[in-house]
Design a protein around this nucleic acid. Structure first.
Lengths: 196, 196
DNA sequence: GAAATAAGAAACGCAACGTCTCTTAGGGAG
DNA sequence: CTCCCTAAGAGACGTTGCGTTTCTTATTTC
């Protein structure tokens, strides 16, 4: 029998395989159904390897999730705030919809028991807003005169992403029209300079 | 020894005790830490009684949660939309903050595996908006001329609760100022009649 | 008062947890 | 090239909670 080649991966290669396995498991069974054993099997490694790196399921999933967070680098720049926003929110919706969002709910449910995890998840979410894509897009728009700098506040910047998240929560998915409603009926009317 | 009196509750009395037990467990250990056995013990009943009524943890928690949903009946009516909203959102924040919100995340995490549960949770959330408190308060405000009926849409009605939920998600709690920001900086500017 | 119904106690096999031990592959130092 | 040390991978372990089942007995209903 041609037995398993027993090639042992280490470091980054191994961790990449683990993250892939988590991502795939999330897609198949969701956060609630994800088990450490299944991840280990899928990544062709053993549970011990996982426990050496992360204390438990929550931290493992969180680490895998962070790998897929949109970076401020790939923010659309079309020269028009509306299309920037629509493009960006649509891509968020597509990426987060099936997997991340479910994982995010699962993680949040565990934060009640684990303050350290709570801090971790919340600081990540906060970063998404602080130095994140929204700031970049809106600052560009301010420079173009599309946005009244006086009404731009941290709260304001959070509104679109908050609404997208809630939409995902309510529907499990988010349509193109929902994104446009959020942009055209809520966000833009709020930040556009009054009395044109 | 004065052994346990072995008084057997049935029907509503029993179910009320179970809901109370779920509520208390949620407060102590959160959704992720809640076990069927612990609920049974706390309610001084047995697991079999619970499984006779609900298929599993998710449905049990959901049922307990529904008991605590604010009814349209007890919506504030101060004669002023702003104070109605602030009062209402504050009470939501207080009730939901510690328990329900965590349970809600947990339930949502399980919807990925259980479409029936997903439908259940989502229809409940949708009802909260459709015939819910927001509709009542805003309709009153329309009659008083405080709100422009033209801009009131289902999307618009969702905005305040969506933002409160997201705030709870990010912070684990919601401050009075956050509620006021949502009302004064986001919702009211959107629905107030233009050009006073 | 008898019969039907459901509460409550307890034991079951199962699945996943998180820990541990042991063997051995791979990479670094000399 | 060889030795050594670190960590990968396999698997067994006891524990916990699941969801089911069986049985006794309190309560309701007729």
């Amino acid at each position: 029998m041609s037995a398993t080649p027993t090639v042992r991966r280490r470091g980054e290669a191994l961790e990449a395989a683990i993250y892939d396995a988590v991502w795939a498991e999330l897609a198949e069974v969701g956060y609630a159904g994800l088990t450490i054993g299944a991840v280990a099997d899928r990544a062709r490694t053993s549970k011990a390897v996982l426990y050496r790196r992360w204390p438990g399921r929550a931290e493992l999933v969180f680490a895998a999730l962070v790998q897929h967070v949109p970076k401020a680098a790939d923010v659309p720049d079309t020269g028009d705030l509306r299309s920037d926003l629509v493009t960006f929110l649509r891509s968020i919706a597509a990426n987060w919809a099936t997997r991340s969002i479910d994982a995010l709910w699962g993680l949040l449910a565990e934060t009640a028991r684990d303050p350290a995890l709570a801090a971790l998840v919340r600081s990540e979410l906060a970063d998404q807003v602080r130095e994140g894509p929204m700031t970049v897009m809106v600052e560009r728009a301010v420079r173009r005169g599309e946005v009244d700098p006086a009404v731009v506040s941290p709260r304001m910047l959070r509104v679109p992403l908050d609404l997208v998240r809630s939409e995902l929560l309510l529907n499990g998915a988010i349509t193109g029209t929902a994104v446009e409603e959020i942009v055209d009926d809520v966000f833009l009317p709020l930040v556009r300079p009054r009395t044109v």
